[in-house]
Design a protein around this nucleic acid. Structure first.
Lengths: 120, 120
DNA sequence: TCGTTAATTAACCAATAGGTTATTTATAGC
DNA sequence: GCTATAAATAACCTATTGGTTAATTAACGA
C-alpha cells in the first residue's frame, strides 16, 4: 500500500472487523478487551487492527491505569467522503440536476470571460 | 482481503493509481492505453488495476474491435458513501443539529407509542 | 513483592497485492 | 495469410496483510 493519506484511510476501512470496531466506537469509547469481545479472533489481532485505525487517524487512544481506551476520530471519514462527493453527480439525480444547472451557468460565463477556473 | 462487498469497494479505492483512473473516467470512457498514458507503470499493471476496479463494480467494460473501453460505474461509490453517512453526525455540525432534532422527535414519539423501530 | 489483569510486542506463517518481463489472444488492414 | 496494434494472461518476485502462539510490559491490589 502506498503512503498517501487517502489510501491509508480507505485501506483501513477495507476490513469488516475494523468497520465493526468503528461502529462500536460510534456508541462510545471502549477498551481493547471490550472491542475484542464480539469477535472470535485473538487479542493481538485486535491490537493490530487498532494500530491500523490509529495510523489512519480514525481513532485516538488514551491510557488510564492498565486500560487503553479508544475513541472515534471522524476527520478521516470526512476526508474520504469529500473525495467521493466529487462523484456524487454520477449517481445522485438531484445533484445531477443541480450540476447541469451550474454547468449551464458556467458555460454562459465562459462565453463572456477569459480563462475560467479549472475545477478539480 | 475478505470477500464482503464493502471491503472490496474500499480496497479498490485504497490505491492512488486506481483513484486517478476513476477520476479520468469521470471525464468520459477511455481505452486501456489511454488510461495507462499518465502513469509510469507497465500496461499489464494497469490491466490488473482495471480488473480490481471491475471486480468492485466501479467500472464496466466493453470491447469494440481490439479496444477495450472502460466506463465509470458510480453505484459502489454510492454504497460506500451511504456507509460513511452513518458517521456524518460526528463531523458535520449541521447534521449534528438535525440529528439532535430527529432524536428529540423520536424520543417524543417513544413516549406515546410502543416498541419504536430500531434504527441501524 | 507477588499474583492478576490488560495490552503490546516478537516471531512466525500463509495468502494477497502490486509490480515486472515474456507470451498469447484477438482484431484490423493490406 | 502476414504484420501491426491492443490488451490480457502467465510466470515470477518482493512486500504487506491478517492471523496465530508465546513472551513481555505495565499497573493494580492485597
Amino acid at each position: 500500500m502506498t503512503t498517501d493519506r487517502l489510501s491509508t484511510i480507505f485501506a483501513a476501512l477495507a476490513d469488516p472487523t475494523r468497520r465493526a470496531i468503528l461502529a462500536r466506537l460510534a456508541e462510545g469509547d471502549a477498551t481493547v478487551s471490550e472491542l475484542a469481545e464480539p469477535f472470535s479472533i485473538s487479542l493481538p489481532a485486535i491490537s493490530r487492527h487498532l494500530k491500523v485505525l490509529e495510523n489512519a487517524g480514525l481513532i485516538s487512544r488514551s491510557r488510564t491505569a492498565q486500560w487503553r481506551s479508544s475513541s472515534l476520530n471522524p476527520e478521516p471519514l470526512r476526508e474520504a467522503t469529500a473525495w467521493m462527493e466529487r462523484y456524487r453527480r454520477f449517481w445522485d439525480v438531484n445533484f445531477a440536476r443541480l450540476d447541469a444547472h451550474l454547468r449551464a451557468i458556467q458555460q454562459a460565463q465562459s462565453a463572456t470571460e477569459q480563462s475560467p477556473e479549472k475545477t478539480q
